[in-house]
Design a protein around this nucleic acid. Structure first.
Length: 572
RNA sequence: CGGAGUAUAGCUCAGCCUGGUAGAGCACCACGUUCGGGACGUGGGGGUCGUAGGUUCAAAUCCUGCUACUCCGACCA
């Protein structure tokens, strides 16, 4: 590609809208432009990267035995009524009506459509297992799109759906997909982790997420330092801790005016945060007569809402009590709650149950209790795992301790079971001639998000540093002064042709209007892995100046070995 | 959806408080100088000041409604 005929669209100033680094750099490098909230146009440079990511995914899906199809973006609402998912999906599902007043939606995912296809096309166990995939545009009317293409409303997803005669076959394909995903993210050149995950609203049993590690990630993931255990923090179990120490203090009530948070309590009354207890009031489930129930976690821990929601006595979805509700039931505000003399049932986190001589609210405004001990001062009834695991917790598999890192979820695989095939009647005849419902698996990769995640993980002050496999160009060819120097121009033309003939993706910066410095800055901003500089001095010596995007020093390559040297560096 | 904020040239922003000829830098066009790290000079093109209404002799500026966008919280690839 000649830069003079190419929409480079780089910008020097960072657009005001962008907050995360990938969004800033994608705008600056001329990869994307915003059309409206959560809607982006992909410019030539961005699309080049996107296509390379798609190609790797396609190759690995094909290798894993999946077949590519392409389903419509617009889907009839009938199917969503049939699967029963229409109400659950809510306003995130963008509903539209055609001229005949028929109801449709823009597809946020394609379980319904693929299941409809398979129930019509697959009739015998002999045709199973099958795995269909597509790389296609999805639309989810996100409440708050943000971070550029990291969380947009329209995005490209690779989604795959497998159908089976039984659970064993599903488990086998699931393993194949797990391996394929690992190969995909390896080839993309990303630092990632596969972690055990919650199945969320899609449903099903076993599930893994693939996370690209990056400090800006929206998810926290926990993994063991001495085993293969890795899980989303949402899911990671916090094991019951040590034995409770024997009481050493008497319980005493202390006036603590204007102390509503744990931070204030710790700062003003010199109590260690690990010996404080937070009391959170949530709505109780109907089965437990409604009303409120209290959840107790240590002051330095966070409530895990997913774990809380799974408790029988807690209403689903989890809903915190309002201040009015709390005052009505307790007679004190949310800053002064605690287990002693609490008029409602409570559930204590395991780590709270292991405390002695701890501090909590006195259920009376402006008062706290210190030196509280279980059984002596208040009976301990129910305990449960309520908190997020933290750095240094023991690994749930009993091996090593947990580390917490941030991750960007780029892939998710599920064993769905028969949720959709049953609702939509996707049956085959088994070997006994009996009708059987097909268990399903589904497997997603956020293709557009992968592009952003790759940048979050690979950049410096000068711009993007692409992993070689997905760079928009393999090489950039820069003449020092193309306007003045005819020899530089001629050599560049020759090299440009040679590189292209060798199948190398080269950007020849033949722009006459731009000076050398601008071209260098653009090459770095774009993150092109290899840079070749052609100079008059070099030509006399038969040499070219080479610099890898991550290199600190330039080196020299003989003109006549350029193509072979680059092919080696590109591992082709 | 709740809370906060923004809207002026393609981009980054000033002007608004205190109403009176719409500005700067970058980008773009022309010419000249410059040329191993985002050059410089001269000249030029480009704006319904988000939108609808109100106040006023006069509104980018004051008032009201609406819309879009961004940020902070509950969803997800």
């Amino acid at each position: 590609m000649r830069a003079s005929r190419y929409l480079l669209a780089t910008v020097k100033e960072t657009p005001a809208d962008a907050v995360v680094i990938s969004h800033k750099l994608m705008l600056r490098a001329g990869m994307i432009r915003k059309l409206a909230s959560g809607l982006y146009t992909w410019l030539p440079t961005g699309l080049r990267v996107l296509r390379k990511v798609e190609t790797i995914i396609r190759e690995e899906m094909d290798r894993a035995g999946a077949q590519e199809v392409l389903m419509p973006v617009v889907q009839p609402m009938d199917l969503w009524e049939e699967s029963g998912r229409a109400p659950a999906y809510g306003p995130e599902l963008l509903r539209i009506t055609d001229r005949h007043d028929n109801a449709f939606c823009l597809g946020p995912t394609h379980e319904e459509v693929i299941t409809d296809l398979v129930r019509n096309e697959i009739h015998s166990y002999k045709q199973l297992p099958v795995n269909f995939y597509q790389i296609q545009t999805k639309f989810r009317d996100e409440i708050r799109p943000r971070f550029g293409v990291m969380r947009s409303r329209e995005f490209i997803m690779k989604d795959a759906y497998s159908f089976h005669i039984d659970a064993d076959s599903l488990a086998q394909t699931y393993d194949i997909m797990y391996t394929a995903y690992s190969r995909i993210f390896d080839r993309l050149g990303l630092d990632y982790r596969a972690v055990e995950a919650d199945t969320g609203s899609i449903g099903g049993s076993s599930s893994h997420e693939f996370h690209v590690l990056a400090d800006s990630g929206e998810d926290a993931i926990a993994f063991s330092d001495s085993s293969s255990y890795a899980a989303n923090v949402e899911l990671a179990a916090a094991k019951p801790g040590s034995e409770r120490p024997t009481p050493g203090e008497d319980m005493r009530e202390v006036d603590t005016p204007d102390t509503r948070t744990i931070d204030e309590l710790v700062a003003k009354y010199d109590v260690p945060v690990e010996r404080t207890v937070k009391t959170l009031l949530v709505h109780a489930s109907e089965d437990f007569g409604g009303g409120l129930v209290a959840l107790l976690v240590r002051g330095d821990h966070e409530l895990n809402e997913i774990k809380a929601e799974k408790l029988a006595s807690v209403a689903t979805p989890l809903e915190f009590a309002s201040e009015e509700e709390i005052r009505k039931v307790i007679g004190a505000g949310p800053g002064s709650l605690g287990p002693v003399n609490l008029p409602i049932p409570f559930i204590a986190d395991h780590s709270v149950a292991a405390l002695a001589d701890f501090a909590a609210g006195a259920n009376s405004d402006g008062k706290h209790l210190f030196g509280i001990n279980w059984e002596r001062d208040v009976a301990l009834e129910t305990t449960a795992d309520l908190r997020n695991v933290v750095d240094g917790d023991p690994s749930p598999d009993g091996q090593g301790t947990l580390q917490i890192k941030r991750g960007i979820e780029v892939g998710h695989i599920f064993q769905l079971g028969t949720k959709y095939s049953e609702a939509l009647g996707a049956n085959v005849l088994d070997e006994n001639g009996k009708s059987a419902v097909m268990p399903m698996g589904c497997y997603g990769i956020g293709v557009t998000r992968v592009v952003a995640a790759a940048i979050e993980q690979n950049y410096d002050d000068n711009g993007i540093i692409w992993p070689g496999a997905i760079a928009p160009f393999d090489v950039v060819l820069i003449p020092l002064n193309i306007r003045k120097n005819q020899r530089e121009r001629e050599l560049c033309e020759t090299l440009y042709q040679q590189l292209q003939d060798a199948g190398i993706d080269v950007l020849f910066d033949d722009r006459e209007k731009e000076r050398f410095g601008v071209k260098m800055a653009d090459a770095e901003l774009l993150g092109i892995p290899h840079r070749i500089l052609v100079t008059e001095k070099g030509i006399d010596a038969g040499a070219l100046e080479y610099k890898g995007r991550r290199d600190t020093e330039a080196s020299s390559i003989a003109v006549d070995t350029l193509v072979t040297t680059l092919l080696e560096k590109l591992e082709r």
